[in-house]
Write a protein that binds this DNA or RNA. Sequence first.
DNA 1: ACCTGAACACCGTTCAAGT
DNA 2: ACCTGAACACCGTTCAAGT
Lengths: 192, 192
Amino acid sequence: MPAPERTSLDEIAAAALELLDEGGLGALTMQAVATRVGVRAPSLYKRVADRTALVERVFLACAAELDAVMRAAAERAGSDGGDRIVAIVVAARDYAHASPHRYHLIFGGVVTDADPAALERSAEPIVAACRALVGPDRALDAARTVTAWAQGFLLMELSGSFRLGGDVEQAFLRGARWIADALVADRDQRLP
Amino acid sequence: MPAPERTSLDEIAAAALELLDEGGLGALTMQAVATRVGVRAPSLYKRVADRTALVERVFLACAAELDAVMRAAAERAGSDGGDRIVAIVVAARDYAHASPHRYHLIFGGVVTDADPAALERSAEPIVAACRALVGPDRALDAARTVTAWAQGFLLMELSGSFRLGGDVEQAFLRGARWIADALVADRDQRLP
DNA sequence: ACCTGAACACCGTTCAAGT
DNA sequence: ACCTGAACACCGTTCAAGT
């Protein structure tokens, strides 16, 4: 009774990510993953509790990736708070266009019970930029406004919900500016 | 060969809506619908092309319902453009809380090939309020900003994505005000 | 003209049997 | 200790056979 290992958790996760990129979450089936790593579906359950756990693992990897992208954009941007927020959401849009299925997995609301600590960390770049802009008291409200808008816009853009014509990129940049300027105005109004 | 009709398209659609409300889109299976209307699953295909068509039918009914809710809120609100937008998104939030699965169906991005005319009509209340506020040139960009933010916020709220504490309702109202005020400021800046 | 059981091609998942 | 085929409970969908 030897026991030759024919695959690994990392290989399984990599195959799952490939399938997500190629055909969305619907294409990420246990059978497809098994085929790709050269094994039968039941064998996957030696390394992964069930499909939900595998999807969550891919979700966390994608969330960490987007987090890194936004952090890098925030650092590249100047010290101006408004510009920083615009730079972060533009980076998020680039990511959404480059990896639409990953973006959809992160924000589509399918994964709901993921590690809270990882989620807090990935929200941090925007919270930090908002804190610098509007102060600690309103930082959370501001971050929720920015995140909700960007995530909502990009999900609508990816799913083709903008059917009334017009320049979608311009709408995005203008929206980013409106929100950033509103936060600046809120601060200026309170600190005369 | 008589032909007793044991159900109807309306009854099928009503059962589908009930199942959506009770357990989300995942509970809306052809078998569950069939059981509820007192028929076997294959019989449904006499009235409905396939599950996608049935889901789309429910989707259109929900979109029309939300549309009516937002129109009523817009009419109830005063003539002030900013207040009107706030009233519309607050009405959308009430709807999302009262019928979370319907709201998720409308904006969750599952239905993607629905009747474009119905979608344009349902976007109209917000476009009209934005037109009154920022003029025709920027009305579409403004409506996209408002819709993306509201839809993103409510989807995140429904899926429990706001895990950092704080008052979520306050964040919503403050976000609505920030965006409405940004649109007013944009107009005032252009028309001195 | 509608309804049905049986069947098919898929899912995810379990488990006893192989090595 | 890992892998497998067979099996189970679900899906959506098709279709020949019933009335």
